[in-house]
């Protein structure tokens, strides 16, 4: 009993803050959560979630026997893994390189310019990319022709989808991603570098042994989140670059749900997929968290 009083006296302020924060989550996240029940019902909007008929796992069965789901799953994993391998490190590397520049107007200009594409919506980016790849007037094909090749119909090939996604993602988001790493890098005490320099460490060694470990917590957080969201392959981007010709590689889980849930009005089926994604993401998060804890980081939970 005494212990409880002591705890309350010490942490009362914290608990007040916690009350506000939890209040927000309970109201806006947990109260609407009954929507998950839609996955188990034959949902009719006018009857409401609770008034609609209970059908158990019928929708789950329909979804999992739909071959389009498995194609979408395969594509989603391919795209997500490719993103992790090729795109994840880029902001970090860019931030480190930028940090090496002398702090002056040039560096400031570079820093500002590289995040600009982040604000251009995917729709416009898609328009620009399509123009670039146009078989008759596109820059890329003009170069190919200049070197004696035949114009390629990039947009009509399914093999170009993944490279286009990865390149445009980096183009658009890498610059913006550097911001958070730059802030983290700036949080490292400069005395640590000086100490290492006195010990005779080269700049590269300083980076590897001081800077990166210092920002490792940020890196591991980003990595955990990326792993946990592996089933979301970037709907806003994919839907722009998806067309009739690359659908066998560009259909991802979210576009599969979109096709069902919106165009098909199969709200229950859409909720089913959403629910499965949630469960898997949580499991992945826990795993990633355990792994990161084993490697010495604090993890997320």
């Amino acid at each position: 009993m005494n212990k409880i009083i002591r705890v309350l006296k010490k942490y009362w302020f914290v608990y007040v803050l916690a009350a506000f924060v939890l209040g927000f989550y309970i109201l806006f996240c947990y109260v609407p959560m009954y929507g998950i029940l839609i996955a188990f019902k034959d949902y009719k909007p006018l009857l409401g979630v609770f008034g609609s008929k209970w059908v158990g796992f019928k929708h789950f069965y329909e979804i999992f026997t739909n071959r389009n789901l498995w194609i979408a799953l395969r594509n989603t994993l391919i795209i997500s893994f490719s993103r992790l391998v090729f795109c994840f490190c880029v902001p970090m590397v860019l931030a480190i390189m930028l940090n090496e520049m002398v702090n002056g107007p040039v560096r400031k200009i570079y820093q500002t310019l590289i995040y600009l594409p982040h604000f251009i919506s995917w729709v416009i980016m898609g328009g620009i990319v399509t123009m670039f790849l146009s078989p008759s007037t596109g820059l890329i094909n003009k170069l190919i022709e200049f070197f004696g090749g035949e114009p390629q119909y990039f947009v009509m090939k399914s093999s170009t989808f993944l490279p286009v996604i990865l390149i445009t993602d980096t183009w658009k988001n890498a610059g913006w991603g550097t911001i958070i790493y730059i802030a983290a890098i700036n949080g490292v005490n400069p005395e640590l570098y000086e100490a290492a320099e006195l010990d005779g460490a080269s700049r590269i060694r300083q980076i590897i042994h001081i800077m990166i470990p210092s920002i490792m917590s940020m890196i591991s957080l980003m990595l955990i989140l990326a792993v946990a969201s592996i089933l979301s392959a970037g709907f806003d981007q994919v839907i722009v670059f998806q067309n009739n010709y690359n659908r066998n590689v560009s259909a991802i889980i979210d576009t599969f749900v979109y096709d069902l849930g919106i165009k098909g009005a199969y709200k229950s089926e859409a909720t089913v997929v959403g629910l499965c994604k949630s469960i898997i993401s949580t499991i992945l998060l826990v795993i990633a968290d355990r792994v990161s804890k084993k490697m010495g980081q604090r993890g997320i939970i």
Partner: peptide
């Protein structure tokens, strides 16, 4: 129109 399949606009 040669871009008829690839134009998005």
């Amino acid at each position: 129109y040669s871009d008829v399949f690839t134009a998005m606009q």
